[in-house]
Amino acid sequence: MHWPADFGTRFTIFVDTEEEFDWRGPFSREARGTTAIAALPEAHRRLSEAGAAITYLVDHPVASEPRAQEILADLLDDGRTGIGTQLHPWVSPPHDEDVNTRNSFPGNLPRELEAAKLDILTDTIRSAFGRSPRIYRAGRYGIGPNTFTLLEARGYRIDSSMRARYSYAGQGGPDFSAVGNAAFRVGGLVELPLTTVYTGRLRRFAPGLYSALGHVPKGRGLFSRLGLLSRVALTPEDMPITDALEAVRVAVGEGTGLLNFSFHSPSVAPGFTPYVRDAADLREFYRWWDAVLALLAKLGVRSASEAELVEAIGQS
C-alpha cells in the first residue's frame, strides 16, 4: 500500500490493553484482573505530552470492567486517542473451546466460534466507549484463514496482528518470518505489521542469515553482541534503548513509511509483566520512550492517530 504523498513518515503506538496473568503459567479463564489499568493515565500523559497519539487495543476483561471502562473513556476525550480490539480467546466468551496453547491463537478456532467471540467483544467495546472499533489485533498475533473476512464483514478497516519477521509456528501459531514492515492490503483491510528491523553490519544478508543462525547454538546472541546482526522489534519490552534507536534510524533510512510500536498495558505498573518487574524497570521503560520519541521528533517522524490512519487509507 502506498501512503498519500502528504502523509509523510509516521509512527503509531498500539497498546495491547489487557488483563493481568502469569506469563510463566498456563492460560486461565480466571485471570481477569485489570488493576494495572489505573496506571495508564500517567503513561498516557507522558507519551501524549511528547507528541504521541495512542491507540488502545482492548480485550474482554478490560472492556467489560466498569473502572477500566471509566479510565479509558477519560483518555479518549482528547480527540487523538483511538480504541480498537484485541481478542484473547481464553478470556473472551463464549467459552466453548478447551483452554490450551493451540486455542490461544484465535485463528485456530472454528470459524463460528472465532466469529462469536469477535461479535461479543466488538459489541462490548462499542457499548462501553460509544464507538465502533476499526483496528484489530489477534491475541498472540493469532490470525487464521477466516480472520480477515470476519473482520471486513464487521466494519474493521485495519488489522495489526502480524509481527514482522517472527514465527509462532512452533507453538501452533502463524509464521510471519517472511512478512516485512510495509503496510499492505488484504481484501478490504489494510495490514499494519508490527515493525521489526534488522540492524548490524551484516543486515543486508538478513533474513536468510538470521534464520540460519537460529540453527547454530547461541549464534544469534553472538552475532548481536558483536554488532553483526540483530533483530529489533519496536517495543520497550526486552529491547535495549541503544538497539531501538539504531532500529529507528535504519527503518527511516530504508524508507519505512509507518513505524508501528507496541507494548502491553500491564507494563505501565511494576510487577505485572516480566519486562517491568519493579520501580527501576519502570523508570527504564519511560527512559526508553523519552529517547525514542526524541529521536523520532529529530528525524521528522510524526505520530499518526487512529483517525489519521483510517483517513490516509481511504485516500491511498
Rank of each mutant, 00 (worst) to 15 (best):
S92F: 13
S92W: 09
P93Q: 10
P93A: 10
P93Y: 12
P93C: 11
P94M: 12
P94K: 09
P94Y: 08
P94W: 12
P94E: 07
P94I: 13
H95Y: 15
H95S: 13
H95W: 15
H95I: 09
H95K: 10
D96N: 08
E97N: 10
E97M: 12
D98T: 14
V99G: 04
V99R: 15
V99F: 12
V99H: 11
V99I: 15
N100E: 15
T101R: 10
R102M: 11
N103W: 08
N103A: 15
N103R: 12
N103C: 14
S104I: 13
S104C: 14
S104E: 13
S104M: 14
F105R: 10
P106D: 05
G107C: 09
N108Y: 01
N108H: 02
N108W: 00
N108D: 05
N108E: 04
N108S: 05
L109H: 01
L109D: 04
L109T: 02
L109F: 04
L109K: 01
P110L: 00
P110R: 03
P110N: 03
P110A: 00
P110E: 02
R111S: 12
R111Q: 12
R111K: 14
R111F: 10
R111L: 12
R111E: 14
E112C: 02
L113E: 03
L113V: 02
L113P: 01
A116K: 11
A116D: 10
A116R: 11
K117W: 01
K117T: 02
K117E: 01
K117Y: 01
L118N: 04
L118C: 05
D119C: 01
D119E: 09
D119G: 07
I120V: 09
I120F: 07
I120A: 06
I120Q: 04
I120Y: 00
L121N: 07
L121T: 09
T122I: 06
T122V: 04
T122R: 07
T122H: 03
T122L: 06
T122F: 01
D123G: 05
D123H: 13
D123C: 07
D123Y: 08
D123R: 09
T124H: 01
T124E: 05
T124R: 06
I125Y: 03
I125A: 01
I125T: 00
